[in-house]
Write a protein that binds this DNA or RNA. Structure first.
Length: 291
DNA sequence: AATTAGCCCTGATTGC
DNA sequence: TGCAATCAGGGCTAAT
């Protein structure tokens, strides 16, 4: 996280302010931010300077500035932010990169990449004929993609014995879903995350994917989820979807559907929140038994 | 081939 | 009060 809705909030903000802008100069701070740009910071700065931002794009949780033939690729990791600023504004804490732009109206504009935990990063990458950057090739289409095909994804999910939450979080199966929205989609669908994919029907998985799409669309409508004030739009503002969460973080609170007390389980080194009544555990857990 | 452990990192929170 | 342990966890890599 930030997951798809939070990244889309950022994409929209960047698109509104930087489409058609020219990158005059870029400065990076520290070695972490460009660790995936193997040629290094001088190469990055040299190749980005003077380029025009044609569009701002996203797939799953990846975001990129389309420079025409190449892209400045960004991943926010757990705590990354892209913030707009004006020259003279105070320097934010945990600043890892600063893009100096001249926007489409000719005004100077700064884009700051801020990241407390430094799991995020930037890179300059080539793109394919569809404009998808090379490092994003292995990322599956997300539910917001016009070419996302729920039937195809459901066929794949129902062909595997892996647990359904594991598969929802697998960005090579469907992208954009992280721990929060996986739990929310499973709650809406009334499924426990350890239900095996191959023991669910295809229509049930298609419904689950529909719930995932719907809950992320709802969150986007609220400006995203602001769980720990690290998820903000390009103006540093938080969204309001946290109020609407039905599962994530609600351990011990009554299920909003049946009133049972929500439980918390540890799974894949992270917390899973679910309703013990609406989302009963499978009798045989994922992977424990194979006929 | 699929799955899992380990790693990266800082700040808020909890425990002694 | 102070210090240490714990937790948050996406995505990649190495190991199984």
């Amino acid at each position: 996280m930030p997951e798809l809705p939070e990244v889309e909030v950022v994409r929209r903000g960047l698109a509104a302010h930087t489409t058609g802008a020219t990158i005059e100069r870029v400065e990076t701070f520290g070695h972490r931010v460009l660790r995936r740009h193997l040629p290094g910071e001088e190469d990055f700065a040299g190749r980005v300077a003077g380029r025009r931002i044609e569009a701002v794009c996203r797939r799953g949780k990846y975001l990129w500035l389309d420079l025409g033939g190449e892209a400045v690729l960004a991943h926010l990791g757990m705590s990354g932010q892209l913030l707009l600023a004006r020259p003279g504004d105070p320097v934010p804490k945990h600043l890892h990169a600063r893009f100096e732009l001249i926007d489409a109206s000719g005004a100077p504009l700064l884009v700051h990449f801020v990241d407390q935990r430094t799991f995020g990063g930037l890179a300059l990458a080539g793109v394919d004929a569809d404009g998808i950057p090379d490092p994003v090739q292995h990322i599956a289409r997300d539910p917001f993609d016009p070419l996302f095909d729920a039937a195809v994804v459901a066929r794949r999910i129902t062909s595997r014995p892996s647990g359904i939450k594991r598969q929802l979080l697998d960005q090579t199966i469907v992208s954009g879903i992280g721990n929060i929205y996986a739990d929310e989609a499973l709650w809406r669908a009334g499924l426990h995350g350890e239900r095996r994919g191959d023991r669910l029907t295809k229509p049930a998985v298609i419904r689950l994917l529909g719930h995932a799409h719907e809950v992320m669309a709802d969150a986007l409508g609220e400006g995203g989820t602001s769980f720990d004030s690290l998820y903000v739009n390009v103006n540093g503002e938080s969204g309001y979807f946290e109020r609407s969460l039905n599962a994530y973080g609600r351990e011990g609170q009554p299920c909003r559907r049946c009133g049972s007390l929500m439980r918390r389980e540890h799974f894949m080194n992270r917390s899973s929140f679910s309703c013990p009544r609406c989302q009963p555990r499978p009798r045989v857990a994922d992977g424990q038994f194979r006929p």
